[in-house]
Simulated scan of single mutants.
Amino acid sequence: MAVKLRPAGILLAAAGALAIAMPVLLLLPGGGGAVPRAAPVPAPIGAGTMPVLARVYERPLFGASEPVEAPADAPRLVGIVGRLNIDAVALVKASDGTTRTLAIGESVDGWSLASLAIDAAFFTRGAERVRVPLPIEPGGSEAGTEETGR
């Protein structure tokens, strides 16, 4: 009994043989033809003026290189209470020594509370914008985090 091949079967067998033979032919020396060589990559612009790597690690990642001192008449931040971006208020000490709570948009001594961060408040007065950080207690411990002895 003779096996009759269909044209689709012949094409499938030829494609399979080609799929197996092609990687072998490409790996043979000279089998893949001449591979064009890429042009040499030029040096980046300003390569000679790049800073020393150690200097890159010394500069701060975010913000200004030098901390900017708040003006003397800016409100002093005592604390932040509440959840940021929801209901947080700032506890500030005004120039007369009284402590007030300020919500975003309220003002004291001509300074308006623009926004709050986890460790600072941002006040504006006209075109002037200042960051007032939370005070850090001596010894590096935050209020309420001291260990108690037995």
Rank of each mutant, 00 (worst) to 15 (best):
T99M: 08
N85F: 06
A21R: 04
S141L: 08
G48V: 07
P7M: 06
R150F: 09
D87E: 04
G82Q: 03
A64P: 14
D119H: 13
F122M: 14
R100G: 00
M50Q: 12
E147F: 11
G32K: 11
Y57A: 15
A70V: 04
W111K: 08
E137C: 05
L5E: 07
R83D: 12
R83H: 08
R55F: 08
P36G: 03
A127R: 11
V89E: 04
G140F: 10
P40N: 01
A70L: 03
I45G: 10
L26K: 10
S141H: 10
D73R: 00
P135E: 01
E142F: 09
E66M: 10
I104L: 02
I20T: 08
D73I: 00
E137N: 13
G110R: 05
V24P: 08
D109W: 08
L113G: 01
D96N: 03
L53D: 11
V130H: 02
F122Y: 11
I45L: 15
L26G: 11
P60H: 14
V3L: 13
I86K: 13
L113H: 02
P42K: 12
N85L: 09
L18P: 04
G32E: 07
E142S: 12
A114I: 06
P135C: 03
D109C: 13
V78Q: 09
G63W: 10
A64S: 15
E106T: 05
P7V: 10
P40C: 03
G149Y: 05
A72N: 06
G9I: 02
G30Q: 06
V24C: 10
A17I: 11
